[in-house]
Design a protein around this nucleic acid. Structure first.
Lengths: 222, 222
DNA sequence: CTTTGACTAATTAATTCAAAAAGTCAGAAG
DNA sequence: CTTCTGACTTTTTGAATTAATTAGTCAAAG
């Protein structure tokens, strides 16, 4: 049987220690980024918050953007986890969509300053981040696809292409948000704006899911 | 009975002449703006295109933005007219939506450079233009509302708030376009991108209208 | 009332420069 | 050999300056 030698063990211990420090850095960076945003946060500040030298941050992360990406990935993984667990408890595709929308907005409101950078940068945001947002989008499409597919299996929906429908729905939902905070420079939207958005999202989702009940929705003849 | 005096007549003649020149300026400005956009077009260029002095442009329009706004209004009126005439010939709300989407994209593709300015300026675009785009949006909501209302009258849809549904649909359709050309700096989207957008728009519209057939869509209980 | 050339005022673009922040590295510490 | 740091270099950023272009004005002529 496999046995740990003292040497091997110490290597694992070190790795754990490394991971621990990596996590600490990400945690400290998250606080700063969430509060001040990417541009108004310096590596020195993050370092001194946890009494590390700035150079040490560069030992763990090749550059500032990689750190930011790690932070983004961290919170995206967190929301994905919560979303997955919550969705499992929902009893209908309708309930599932409502939960998805509530949870999603909760997340956006909490980490708005992180997203702001992505929003304002637009299409020319750095490649590593593009990739993370791409993953995030794919993850959302998967979520919506599985919600729709479960409706198909229950004979509720009669469509052929749940994946495409999910993509259309995702973009349509994005349209609900656009007018309130998409382009150019803007500050944190206020509570009532978020409420408006949520109402419109839910209204759209309701109509959309009802639309999927109609077999005609699958037969496109443009 | 009312009779024109020679004096009155000459006043009308002059006014017609004025309007004629106004139109000429707008026409010349449209050509320049459509080709080079607002920022890359100077008042001198527009003036010399039609052998007017630059000062004369300022006799007819108080400033550059007013001229641009007049150009925008001109083409928006044009598309509204064509839209109205075309929609009258459609036989169902479904056909009407498809016509609306086709006509709308035709317009966007033709005058993309004019819209680009509005897109890139985002929320902080000048007040007079904001107003024009607001009008344009209202006009689109009206179009969609009347399409939906005609479906309600034919007992096809069972909803209480056609206006709100129209607004949601309009924003949802905007979501279909967003990913392709919304934020930051970008060039004219290519043909295949426009085609993708149109397909997604039509898919969404189809599902949406089918969703309106279901009475549940009106009873929102979040 | 229209039109213009010659004018001024405002914007934009290009350049420079200093401060701040990102990023590197030789070598210390364990 | 791995982890860490202070001191260093390189890049970015922002403010300040200037030049050039363009928006916008106006007195006077047609």
């Amino acid at each position: 049987m496999f046995q740990l030698s003292p040497d091997t063990f110490s290597i694992f211990a070190l790795m754990e220690n490394q991971d621990k420090k990596r996590e600490l850095i990400i945690e400290a960076a998250l606080k700063r980024f969430a509060h001040f945003g990417l541009n108004k946060t310096t590596m020195s500040e993050i370092a001194s918050d946890i009494s590390f030298s700035k150079a040490l941050l560069y030992y763990y992360f090749p550059d500032k953007l990689s750190l930011f990406a790690a932070v983004m990935k961290s919170i995206i993984d967190q929301i994905s986890e919560e979303m997955l667990q919550g969705l499992a408890k929902q009893t209908s595709s309708y309930q599932a969509i409502l939960f998805y929308l509530d949870k999603r907005q909760e997340f956006v409101r909490k980490y708005f300053n992180l997203l702001e950078f992505a929003i304002t940068s637009g299409p020319d945001l750095p490649a590593p981040l593009l990739q993370i947002f791409k993953q995030s989008r794919d993850s959302e499409i998967n979520t919506l696809t599985s919600i729709i597919e479960s409706g198909v299996q229950q004979q509720e929906f009669h469509i052929k292409n749940p994946g495409f429908c999910a993509e259309v729905l995702l973009d349509a939902l994005a349209g609900m948000r656009m007018r309130y905070f998409l382009p150019g420079k803007m500050f944190y939207p206020d509570k009532s704006q978020f409420e408006e958005i949520l109402i419109k999202e839910k209204q759209l989702a309701t109509i959309f899911l009802n639309g999927l009940k109609n077999p005609d929705s699958a037969q496109l003849s443009f």
